[in-house]
């Protein structure tokens, strides 16, 4: 495992911890899209079915379990927690996420490495992860003001994607048989979706002001 991959995993983990911290400390999930969180839960469940079929390393297995458990915990809090669910911006979170699921499933049936159950689900999870942030970005755009922890959460998620791209570039040059174009193309699309957010994040950071997205 190279340093970029490790930093990618760590920033991914940090983003989830920030989100859990926000929900736990403020007992509020305002500014967080339940639809994006549901999509991530689905992404992890679909991709990490290989927990039962392939063993890579203790690190991989532990991270997979952490990602599945944390994403389910977040969805549970936002839907069921007596206090937390009251702060959910339901009327702002109206993205039709089922269309994303349907489109990604259709694409996975058409484009995958091998037409087997696990391979189709794996490709589906990669495609879905690439677009899962969309409801979250739309919600932030609509509410305009972004609180600190929510801003950090999205920033670290974006950093995770950026590190994974560096990881693929590194692997491409250091490994003889590294070809993973499904991950790479999807990963590029996913990172590009953050470009706009990053732009405003850096402007607010430079001016030392609150993060605001244009209406």
């Amino acid at each position: 495992m190279n340093i970029f991959r490790f930093l990618g995993d760590m920033t991914h983990l940090i983003s989830i911890l920030i989100l859990l911290l926000k929900i736990y400390a403020t007992k509020s999930c305002s500014g967080i899209s339940l639809k994006t969180q549901e999509l991530y839960a689905l992404v992890f469940l679909a991709r990490y079915l290989d927990l039962f079929t392939d063993f890579i390393s203790v690190y991989n297995s532990v991270m997979k379990v952490v990602f599945i458990a944390s994403s389910l915990a977040i969805v549970w809090c936002m839907r069921r927690h007596r206090v937390v669910r009251r702060s959910y911006d339901k009327e702002l979170d109206t993205f039709r996420h089922y269309f994303l699921v349907a489109a990604c499933l259709a694409l996975a049936l058409l484009v995958q490495e091998k037409f087997t159950f696990l391979e189709v689900l794996w490709a589906f999870s990669i495609y879905l992860e690439a677009v899962a942030i969309l409801p979250q970005l739309v919600l932030l755009q609509r509410s305009g003001n972004v609180d600190n922890l929510t801003g950090q959460y999205v920033f670290f998620l974006g950093a995770y994607r950026a590190f994974y791209i560096l990881n693929w570039i590194y692997r491409y040059f250091t490994e003889t048989h590294f070809s993973r174009w499904i991950s790479c193309v999807s990963g590029l699309v996913q990172t590009a979706l953050y470009a706009d957010f990053f732009y405003y994040y850096f402007i607010s950071w430079k001016n030392n002001s609150k993060l605001q997205l244009p209406a």
């Binding site: 392939d54 890579i56 390393s57 991989n60 091998k114 990881n167």
Partner: peptide
């Protein structure tokens, strides 16, 4: 040789 790629990333 198989062209299967080990899914060693998360």
């Amino acid at each position: 040789a198989s062209n299967e790629v080990t899914k060693d990333e998360l």
